[in-house]
């Protein structure tokens, strides 16, 4: 099912890169490196399991979708990073 836009946002500066979210993601939609993390937009179904799993509450769910990409530069880098690998 097509979805309008990404609703899951990982606040990059706050993440501990622990991988708990990746472990519960049923869609293999999170790319995690040593200190980089990103949601792979095409796979994410906005199920929110990652939001619930995050021990530090750094994953946000935006009901209206993320229309403007996050301002943080690292978030943009991370999104590009996730795409560059596949």
């Amino acid at each position: 099912m097509a979805k309008p836009f990404l609703m899951i946002h990982i606040r990059p500066g706050k993440c501990d890169y622990c991988g708990c979210c990746v472990g519960v993601c049923p869609e293999d939609a999170i790319e995690l490196q040593e200190s980089k993390i990103a949601v792979i937009e095409e796979r994410c179904t906005n199920c929110r399991k990652c939001v619930w799993a995050c021990p530090w509450e750094v994953i946000e769910f935006h009901r209206e979708g993320i229309k403007d990409l996050p301002k943080e530069i690292s978030a943009l880098d991370n999104l590009q990073f996730a795409h560059s690998l596949k």
């Binding site: 622990c18 991988g19 708990c20 990746v22 472990g23 519960v24 993601c25 049923p26 293999d28 995690l32 399991k49 619930w52 799993a53 995050c54 021990p55």
Partner: peptide, 22 residues
């Protein structure tokens, strides 16, 4: 816990949220 290699080999390694300890 963040394993993805198994998934790429065709094994469903996703942990049910009831069983994942945060």
């Amino acid at each position: 816990v963040e394993s993805r290699v198994g998934k790429w080999a065709g094994i469903d390694t996703t942990c049910h949220i009831r069983d994942m300890e945060s």
